[in-house]
Structure formats: structure tokens, C-alpha cells
Amino acid sequence: MSTLVEMFSYDFMVRALVAGVAIALVAALIGVPLVLRRSSMIGDGLSHTAFGAVAVALVAGVMPTFLALLIVLMAAFVILWISRNRKVYSDAMIAVLSVSSLAVGVLVISLGGGVNIDLNSYLFGSILAVGWMDAVMSVVLAVMVMILYIVLFKRIFAVTFDAEFAQSVGVKVGLFDAIFALICAVVVVIGMKLLGALLISGLIIFPALTAMRLTKSFKCAIIVGCIVAVVAFLVGLILSFLLTLPTGATVIVVNLVIFLVAVVFNRCL
């Protein structure tokens, strides 16, 4: 107990806790529909784009969060367009965007030799990188997404289950896709600082997969996904502090363990 008290006596741990719990919640909320619509790779594509954007921003001396958000938002809409365009192989094009951004990021950092940048902290995350601004932004985002979910829950279900039917009863499916891409972009940019560009998409995918294994209804899947995401983040954060492990990797491994347990207890809720 005293270790926990000590742990949260550090300002950076409190910031990581606030931002992490909020981001984990939002990621789980958007994760279930994205995974069910087979669009979860959007998180991966955007996180690598965010890495490239942050690298350019740091070398150019521009605010990294702001530039990354701007570029990732643009990338989100490009990915949306790609996934709707039947003339291109969307998964291959998302992979092209993803690896190209990563490569550009590494090259820019390498060429901007005078800049002191810890590459690992952006690739694998660093809780020290989370500022109060990020924590506040995460909480505001979480509250907004939760309100959006309550108001639009029935429409989110309809679009996720059968977009064509939803459109036939007047739901604006394109607008939904745009809103989800936008939220995904913000989650990636803020979450990248905690979990890193290579691991942040796990926060979107794992809780959703776990919840889908355990639940029989969409409503339960969303609620269980949120609980799993928050518990996995808290356990991961505490373990990483106690064992001096990287936070991002620890959170993802905790998520993996929970998922494997869920595979055993298939659809019990």
C-alpha cells in the first residue's frame, strides 16, 4: 500500500494515470465498432503516421502534439477515403502509409543530428512525456466521447452491425466514419506518448477482442471493453513502476494475458 502511495506521490505518475485511464476508456469505446467493422488497422496506420509527424515537428522546432494532430487527422481522412475506394487495395495502402511515415520519421531524426531526441520514447512510449495539457485533453476527450456514445448508441450499433441497412433508415454512415476516424486520430496522438507509436493500436484492439469473446450483446461488449481497458492499464502502470519495466509494453502484455483468459471463458456474460 505504501508503495502505491509513493508511486502516486510523483506528479508524472498522476499525469500518466489520468491520461492513461481516459485514453484507455476512449480507445475501448471506439475499439469495439472498429474491430467489428474490420477497420482496426486504422489505429496502426495512424500511430505510425503520428511518429513521422512528431519527428518532423521536433526537428523543425514546432509543437509536436499540434503538428502530429494536424497530420494524423489528415491521414485519418486519407485512410477513410482509401478504405471506401474499391479501386485500391485498402489494407496494402494503409500499410504503405504506415511504413512510409515510420521511415520518414527515423530518417528525419537521423538527419537532424543536432537535435537531442530519444527515439525509443516515441516508438515505445514514456510516461515522463505526458504533460498536464495531455491529461486534461484526454479527460475532455473521454467525457465528450462518452456523451456521444450515450446519445448515438443505437446508431453506432446499427452502423456497426449493418451499415447498408443503417443507411437505408437514414443514418449518415459517412459522417459516422469521419467522427470515428477523428476520435481515433486524437487517441493515437495523446496515447502515443504513453504507449508509443508501435503499441498504441493495441489499446484499441485488445479490450475490444477480449470483450467480444466474453459477451453476448453489443451493449455488454462496450461496457466490458471499457472495464478491461481501464483494469489492464492500471495493472500495467503499477507493474511497470514496481518492476521498472516500460509502461507501454507492460500494458499491452497485461491486455494479452486478459485476452487469453477470455478465450478460455468464451461468452459467459
Partner: peptide, 12 residues
Amino acid sequence: NFSATVREVVMS
């Protein structure tokens, strides 16, 4: 593996 009950589907 879509988690959805018949109730949820019909109500939509």
C-alpha cells in the same frame, strides 16, 4: 463473432 442479441438487431 459479433456480440449482438436478436433483441438488439430487431430494435435497430
